[in-house]
């Protein structure tokens, strides 16, 4: 187990360094940020001074080396625009993004698994077909357009929910969260539903497919032959088996939810990292883009690790490594 963890850590570190290089090369190629930052009337001397101040006059590899050294000590450079450490800027916005992604995922799981179960148990019934049709629709609806429609209906037509911002927050262990205040809830409702929709459709399909396969298995028939109530057959025997692939996918999708939050945050002006990224791309704020990507990559790696652990907890065959099987 320890050897496995160490190997995983080594692999993760390699991916991280590799990504940092790719990202750095990529981002380095973006236009000249000095043009955006200095006064258009500034003369050559002033430009050169600004360039030197940002460290942009050094050769590329040296810039990367400086960056890498800094990164190792937690310094991912300073934002060109805000002139604060890029990492601080990201970490400042990260709770908002994580909260949004988390609430969206909770909505998707809380609705997706039960609906998928129903659709899987009764695939030919009207309700089963209805759920499937809904999930096809959910798959086809472009996230950003749904966001617009939500604003159109709930903010403009009905005037029930605010169309932008995060609302009042409450600090829990020093981290501000929205979902504990009424105003915060009103603000997070639409963005979270918007972000959840695609994952909801995905979970419905996944659960349905898994259920349809599981109910045909002998162990389900055997469980029924024991005279177990339907609730236990479905809730324990079927669910626990289909949960294995579902947990994997949920884990993997958590990363993509954070990435897709870029779109949702832009629509609802949610003050998270995604909106920060888009702003930074438009302002050519290189260090912030790099810092964002590295933080996200790190987050992905952590999530993947947690998913692996969860997976082995759910599936005894993985936990024991199969070595204990005596055939």
């Amino acid at each position: 187990m320890l050897a496995y963890a160490i190997r995983r850590f080594g692999q993760s570190l390699f991916v991280l360094v590799l990504m940092s290089f790719i990202v750095f090369v990529g981002v380095y190629a973006i236009g000249n940020p000095v043009e955006l930052l200095v006064n258009p009337q500034a003369d050559e001397v002033e430009r050169a001074r600004a360039t030197a101040a940002l460290g942009l006059d050094k050769p590329f590899l040296e810039q990367y080396w400086v960056f890498l050294k800094g990164a190792a000590s937690g310094d991912l450079g300073r934002s060109f625009v805000y002139n604060v450490p890029a990492l601080d800027l990201i970490l400042d916005k990260l709770p908002a993004t994580i909260e949004l992604a988390f609430v969206a995922m909770v909505i998707a799981i809380a609705l997706g698994i039960p609906l998928g179960l129903v659709a899987g148990l009764k695939p030919d019934s009207a309700i089963g077909r209805g759920i499937m049709a809904g999930s096809i629709l959910g798959f086809s609806l472009p996230t950003f357009w749904v966001g617009l429609v939500l604003i159109m209906v709930f903010s403009v037509q009905l005037g029930w929910l605010p169309s932008n911002g995060r609302g009042d927050t409450l600090a829990v262990a020093g981290i501000p969260v929205s979902f504990l205040t009424a105003d915060g809830l009103a603000h997070i409702a639409m963005p979270a539903v918007n972000l959840a929709l695609f994952k909801l459709s995905l979970l419905i399909r996944l659960t349905r497919a898994g259920t349809r396969e599981a109910v045909l298995q002998d162990y389900v028939k055997f469980a029924r032959a024991k005279g177990l109530p339907q609730s236990r057959v479905i809730g324990v025997h079927v669910l626990k088996n289909i949960l294995i692939p579902i947990v994997t996918v949920i884990g993997l999708e958590l990363g993509s939810v954070i990435a897709f939050a870029i779109v949702t945050e832009s629509i609802f002006a949610w003050p998270g990292t995604g909106k920060l990224l888009i702003d930074s791309i438009n302002q050519l704020d290189r260090p912030v883009i790099v810092a964002y990507l590295l933080v996200i990559v790190t987050l992905f790696i952590v999530i993947n690790f947690v998913v692996d652990v969860l997976y082995s907890m759910l599936d005894p065959r993985v936990r024991l490594g199969g070595a204990a099987a005596s055939h």
């Binding site: 990202v23 990435a259 870029i262 779109v263 992905f300």
Partner: peptide
């Protein structure tokens, strides 16, 4: 392992 939108965006 990375979302398509993130790669395309960058």
């Amino acid at each position: 392992s990375f979302p398509a939108i993130l790669i395309a965006l960058i």
